[in-house]
Design a protein around this nucleic acid. Structure first.
Length: 936
DNA sequence: CAATTCGCTATCGCTC
DNA sequence: GAGCGATAGCGAA
């Protein structure tokens, strides 16, 4: 273990560099690689008074009877003097030696949740991070199975020897193994070549003509080979890792078996083995959220964390155990006033002031070390990165900096780090788990959408804030961050736990990777469990043939769903029939999988309509098995449990989370088959799925029409039927079941639907007056507020309609409201904010090379003005006269607006509603079509 | 490292 | 200036 004996000591930096007589105690220099934990102990004398004040939890260094020390802070040196004076003899020492201790070893017989598998380069072994739920700490278990990195090849051991592979330095042995090859339907005799370390796989795999399973990360391989399920309980018995059996009643088992009684034996066995995944309770954890503020001289510029040039001025800490604390750095150019102290006393968190940034950081590290789970918002990119480099810069020894960097992420040496920014940025989480409630993924947007709480609004830059403002601002961020993990009885955490168990991926990976990575991991795990060879992507593409359909939209690879062209108008009593999760059901029903599509030597197959791919029915495919299991579990068991009033609220909530985790998975299962980045990419499978879907919906629509029902609309898996008698609905449902084996059900019953005549564009009103607005411009977030307000006003009028007669009356009122809006606009009734368009920069500014869209123009103007803008930001701009045509709302003035553009916005946005009432918007405007106006 | 296609609207940037 | 394909964003399913 390398230790510097010269150079600055801990005490030096804590005491501000001046020679001090206090000593750093060092004990037992842990030499040798086996011992990770350095046992050196360092004692540090505290530099602030920990006083408890009756009325608040604020503790600060100033003695109440000596306020002058606080106020006299013109220079750093006098601050120090003040601190020294204020430091009481009783100040206890804090033990910082803990920073150098890694995770302890797992002990025999204890129960743990499996959190993570890592490869430890020093030990050359797999290391498992296990969570002790009683002690709330993470312990390590080092592999005792002698598991090694490897890959597979069809080169025989003899040939491998001849080729010189066995003489390679990184060669570590070989075995003959058998794997079933799903693509070629044969049992393959393969050579398993072990290597000394995971990186060596890359080198050796290139020495053989064909290698399989050679690009799988080592820690994933370990999980597959041992059949591990993260976030379930394990124990250590005779140095081996053993899963803790999950106890379930016979009743539960028979319930599951009954739900799946028509399924294959393989399906049933799998279903039983999956019970713990959904039923085992999630681990209770001790977590801490942190957020830092950095002094920045220039406004709006985010300092480079790799350089960490400026001091960390404040750190807020919020623990799931109730810890609420802010560590603040005193600045020599800013004095702390009585008023600020009084204000801080009123807060419900503790504040500690430091005159040394190093001491502050050390204390921060010490606190984080007490929590096995660290939570941040954008910690990978900023906070942890900044702390890491800042700590180095300030001379804190490497082995006291408890973070480690791997690839683009940061984590702690003693536990795990969840970066909630990464988690909330996952598309599948946005859409399926949180219903697109937030669009921008910054803390304020996500917190206000999910928690209903905002960041503290500040108008000044961080560096200009007073101490109390800074601290209050900072703490809110840490609190919001913690809440984004724990709100709704820890819903996000539970969701992570479930996705981790389903995907067999650690929480750290699950929260940083997109849905295709989750699905890939589950599929690979299930392949390995069955000793199936994990195929190479090129082989699937080569063997499964090409795409037969052509997409309707240019640039797309294959044809997707069918959309019915609706007629504009208002229709009363509309019933919507819906195929319940159509694509996953098709996958299951028609046995669509990468191996079953155009399978060689197939005896019995079904041909996909239009595209003609032959889907083999000889044996159950792996995709139908996995997707079918999740779908059936969700539909037959967990959707029901989530609504079961006989269960207590907590359990019901859990089951609701279970079913929504499944939903995320199921909904993406079709999409990944058509994504060329997916390891099991199989476009013929994807286009077969949509082809079956089009066939089913069109045939059902025809059947409805044959039975005298008017089909008003339909999209992908839904049909809007005009006032259908119940017996005919039942007839259709039964026919679909009989003809296709698919489930179709009544999804919604509308009092009436207003169709605008456009696809994906309608207003549905329920009997109770609640509404669905789909696709209308007035609903889109880029639409300016002034039209949106009127849009909402119109919707509110529309939902009051009860009879066809009332439509005529409402029609008249709608016209009036729209006319009024034109008048208001002409009279400049609206302010700039109400007139602003809002558009997101979906790419970095430099990436707009093909053209220059308006929001990008506006963004560039903001940038020139000194405002930091970039990818993911929503730009608010108005349309102005002149060559540029736009201006960011911050820089524009009312008189320069191009009103004509705004009249156009009214016309297109509200025109959609008017069309449903068959009103031509043109004659209402009076500007765009003058003749039309005059003729009325 | 990244799930899909279909549909609507506005604008850009080029050609005639 | 009209026409038109490409680009971009947002939404439905």
């Amino acid at each position: 273990m390398k230790r510097r004996h010269r150079g600055p000591t801990l005490l030096d930096f804590l005491n501000g560099g001046k020679g001090s007589k206090k000593e750093i105690e060092k004990k037992g220099n842990g030499n040798g690689k086996e011992k990770k934990a350095n046992t050196a102990q360092v004692k540090v004398i505290e530099r602030r008074v920990n006083r408890s004040i009756e009325t608040s939890t604020l503790s600060y260094f100033v003695k109440a009877e000596k306020p002058k020390h606080v106020q006299a802070t013109p220079k750093l040196s006098s601050t120090r003097r003040a601190l020294r004076v204020a430091l009481p003899a009783s100040a206890g020492a804090r033990d910082y030696s803990v920073l150098m201790k890694g995770a302890p070893e797992a002990s025999e017989g204890s129960e743990y949740y499996l959190f993570q598998v890592l490869y430890d380069g020093h030990r050359g072994k797999a290391v498992l991070l296990l969570y002790d739920e009683k002690k709330h700490e993470i312990v390590e278990w080092v592999d005792t199975y002698g598991h090694k990195p490897y890959f597979l090849t069809d080169v025989t051991p003899e040939e491998a020897r001849r080729m010189g592979i066995t003489r390679e330095e990184t060669f570590a042995g070989m075995d003959v193994v058998y794997r079933y090859d799903l693509l070629n339907k044969e049992l393959k005799r393969l050579t398993k070549i072990y290597t000394t370390d995971p990186l060596a796989v890359r080198k050796l795999r290139d020495k053989v003509p064909t290698a399989w399973e050679a690009k799988i990360k080592y820690h994933d391989n370990y999980v597959y080979d041992l059949g591990l399920i993260p976030m379930l309980k394990y124990t250590v018995k005779s140095k081996r890792l053993v899963p803790m059996p999950h106890r379930i009643t016979g009743e539960e088992v028979s319930k599951v078996l009954k739900a799946f009684e028509e399924e294959s034996e393989e399906f049933k066995n799998m279903a039983i083995s999956w019970i713990p995944v959904f039923e085992a309770p999630p681990p209770h954890i001790k977590a801490v959220a942190i957020d830092i503020e950095v002094f920045t001289p220039s406004v709006g510029r985010i300092p480079d964390p790799e350089k960490a040039p400026y001091p960390i001025t404040s750190v807020a800490i919020a623990g799931s155990d109730g810890l609420k604390k802010v560590l603040v750095l005193l600045r020599n150019d800013k004095r702390l006033t009585e008023e600020e102290i009084e204000n801080l006393k009123k807060q419900d968190f503790e504040v500690e002031f430091y005159d040394s940034e190093k001491a502050l950081l050390l204390e921060l590290l010490r606190i984080i070390r007490q929590y096995p789970v660290l939570i941040t918002y954008n910690g990978d990119n900023f906070d942890l990165n900044y702390i890491f480099h800042r700590a180095k810069l300030l001379g804190i020894p490497d082995d006291m900096i408890i973070f480690k960097k791997s690839n683009d992420m940061f984590t702690t040496k003693h536990g795990i780090h969840i970066d909630l920014y990464q988690f909330y940025d996952i598309n599948a989480i946005k859409t399926y788990a949180f219903g697109n409630k937030y669009k921008e993924v910054n803390l304020d947007a996500v917190a206000s959408a999910l928690l209903g709480e905002h960041k503290v609004q500040i108008t000044k830059s961080i560096s200009e804030l007073n101490y109390d403002e800074l601290v209050i601002y900072n703490f809110r961020d840490a609190k919001l961050t913690l809440n984004l993990l724990t709100f709704n009885s820890w819903l996000p955490w539970k969701l992570m736990v479930l996705i981790s168990r389903i995907s067999k991926m650690s929480i750290e990976d699950v929260t940083r990777k997109q849905v295709s990575a989750w699905i890939k991991n589950l599929f690979f795990w299930e392949h390995r469990r069955r000793r199936y060879l994990i195929p190479n992507k090129e082989d699937i593409e080569r063997m499964k043939g090409s795409i037969k359909s052509s997409a309707i939209i240019k640039g797309k690879r294959y044809q997707g769903a069918f959309v019915f062209e609706p007629v504009a108008g208002i229709f009363f009593n509309v019933v919507v029939l819906d195929f319940a999760s159509l694509y996953p059901t098709i996958i299951k029903k028609y046995n669509i999988s990468y191996e079953t599509v155009n399978e060689p030597n197939c005896k019995k197959y079904i041909e996909a309509p239009e595209v003609g791919h032959k889907i083999c029915q000889d044996r159950e495919g792996i995709t139908p098995l996995i997707v079918g299991l999740l779908r059936d579990y969700r539909v037959k068991i967990y959707k029901k449990k989530a609504k079961d009033k006989s269960l207590d609220d907590r359990l019901r909530e859990w089951y609701n989370t279970v079913q929504s985790a499944m939903k995320v998975y199921i909904n993406a299962s079709y999409g990944v088959l058509g994504a060329d980045s997916f390891e099991l990419y199989c476009p013929p499978a994807a286009e077969s799925i949509t082809a079956f879907g089009r066939y089913a919906i069109k045939a059902t629509m025809n059947y409805a029409e044959k039975n005298g029902i008017v089909v008003l609309y339909g999209d992908t898996d839904s049909m809007f039927l005009w006032s259908p008698p119940k017996e005919i609905l039942d007839k259709i449902i039964a026919w679909v079941k009989e003809k296709f084996g698919l489930e179709i059900e009544i999804d919604k019953v509308y009092k009436f639907v207003a169709f605008t005549g456009l696809k994906k564009n309608y207003i549905g009103v329920y009997p109770d007056g609640s509404i669905d607005v789909k696709g209308l411009l007035g609903k889109k977030r880029n639409t300016p507020l002034f039209v949106k307000q009127t849009f909402i006003q119109l919707i509110d009028m529309i939902k009051e309609i009860n009879t066809p007669e009332e439509v005529v009356e409402t029609r008249r009122k709608v016209k009036e409201v729209v006319k009024q809006l034109y008048t208001n606009l002409r009279r400049q009734y609206y302010d700039l904010d109400e007139l602003a368009f809002h558009m997101q920069l979906t790419k970095p500014l430099e990436a707009y090379t093909k053209n220059m869209p308006q929001h990008v123009k506006a963004a560039l103007m903001l940038k020139r003005f000194g405002v930091e803008v970039g990818q993911g930001d929503v730009i608010s701009f108005v349309k102005v006269k002149g060559s540029e045509g736009v201006k960011p709302v911050q820089l524009a003035k009312l008189p320069e607006l191009d009103l004509d553009k705004y009249f156009d916005v009214i016309e297109t946005t509200l025109g959609q509603i008017l069309k449903a009432f068959s009103i031509d918007s043109a004659y209402l405007s009076g500007t765009s079509k003058l003749e039309a106006f005059l003729s009325h």
